[in-house]
Every structure is written in C-alpha cells, then in structure tokens.
Amino acid sequence: MSESLFDKIGGEGAVDAAVDIFYRKVLNDDSIAHFFDDTDMDGQIAKQKSFLTMAFGGPNEYTGTDMRKAHAPLVEKGLNESHFGAVAGHLQATLQELGVPEELTNEVMAIAGSTHDDVLGL
C-alpha cells in the first residue's frame, strides 16, 4: 500500500508545526485578519488545525455543506476571491517555510483549491 499524502507530509506532527506559522501569517495580513480575528483564539486555532488536517489529506469530517455553512457568515461580511487567494498564498508560504517538497505542496494546494466554491458560497 502506498503512503498517503498525510503520512508523507508528516501527519499530525506536521499539522501542529504548521498551525502556528499559518495562523500567524493570516493574522498579520490586514486584508484578511478581520475574518479570523475572534477573541476565541482556542476556537480559531482548532479551526485552522482541522482545515490544515483536511488540506494535508488527513482524517477529517469536513463535507462541502459544512464548508458552505461555516463560511456563509463570512461571505455575508464580504469574503471574496481575493481573500481566498490570500489565504491560499499563506498556506503555500507555510509549506515552503516547513520545507515540504514541491510535489506534496502541489497536492495540498489542489485539495485546498477544491474548497473554493463551497467557501465562497458559489
């Protein structure tokens, strides 16, 4: 049996390593920080963690409907294409910072990209 994407990246350990770097980048980006700037930092970190787990091809309970429902309030606040692109950029930069090989990064970005329509409510 071939190793899964999640295992190749480094499993849960990789998610733990990535979550702080990724969330810091997002909060430091003024164009998107307000979507993530909740006083409930634990909740926010938990959300980033489950997002990264999904993007890394790990075990998750996300469905398209969940994605749609979870992001609907943000779409109402003006979440659009450019914000989606910014978050994707931070994800890519996080993976580069962690030294994830290019072909794995591409796979992760493809999974993240597949959420596009649900996240933006299209």
Binding site: V19, D20, Y23, R24, L27, N28, T39, M41, I45
Partner: peptide, 15 residues
C-alpha cells in the same frame, strides 16, 4: 488576557 495573548503569539510565542 486576550489582547496580550494575541500579541505574544504574533511576536512568536508558541500557542
């Protein structure tokens, strides 16, 4: 507590 937590995190302290 909440503002300091965020500032410290952004300054590089692990969550």
């Amino acid at each position: 507590v909440n503002t300091t937590r965020k500032k410290a995190f952004l300054a590089g302290i692990a969550s």
